[in-house]
Write a protein that binds this DNA or RNA. Structure first.
Lengths: 113, 113
DNA sequence: TTGACGTATTCCTATATGGGAATGTAATGT
DNA sequence: ACATTACATTCCCATATAGGAATACGTCAA
């Protein structure tokens, strides 16, 4: 079996760095494709294809404005990702406190970090 | 160009559902490969290969225990993912509050939601 | 040493890219 | 109707899987 499609879910869709850049760019306000092209320095067909993937998994919304297509990030679709990563939050907090102790010279873990 | 390697970063590595399951399983305590195989119902070579990917991007740590290899999740490597998704937190919070207002009849945004 | 156990690696194949180039299509102005 | 603008889609190709099967490797017990 090959790798799962990039359109299979948000996790696969955001694995591509350019798609994350696009989501960042479209987070604050909707923008036409041309603006994304200019902003990210990618070819227009490339941007359209990335937007297609993002659309398929619901990471962006679109509406037509004359001959332009206005895209914007649908943050709600990023939430499952956030929730999953959040379940590990307490673990790195534990590690942080250890690092802090170390920095403060309160432990003998110097051979572990 | 083809898709980026699964070992290129944490985003690509966790795109695979089974690897997320493995990370969930190894979050609380270290476990030998055999336990993962039994727990997730995958073939042993498959598990070893997934662990290899997770190792390459630092998502798990390993240590040998006799003929067993004990793996555990390195939550710190998940943090970049959490940080990125976190930047969108305020957006879905906005949507939520707007939905709430709407439900409470406190706004005239009915044409926007 | 030999055998068994626990893992890792190699070989194979169907499938899915992401980018470049070229082309198709919808909407607007004249 | 026609040219132009703004995007989307298609074709092509090098590359990277994920899983299955078979095999190699490292460690321990007898």
């Amino acid at each position: 079996m090959a790798r799962a499609a990039t359109t299979s879910d948000a996790f696969n869709a955001v694995a591509e760095p350019r798609r994350r850049e696009i989501l960042n760019y479209l987070a604050l306000q909707e923008r036409p494709v041309g603006d994304i092209v200019a902003s990210l320095g990618l070819e227009q067909p490339s941007v359209s294809k990335h937007l297609g993937v993002l659309r398929d998994v619901g990471l962006v919304h679109v509406r037509r404005d004359g001959r332009r297509m206005l895209y914007r990030t649908n943050a709600e679709a990023i939430r499952p990702l956030h929730e999953w990563t959040k379940t590990f939050e307490r673990f790195w907090q534990h590690q942080l406190s250890r690092v802090k102790e170390l920095a403060e010279g309160k432990s003998r873990l110097s051979d572990k970090v």
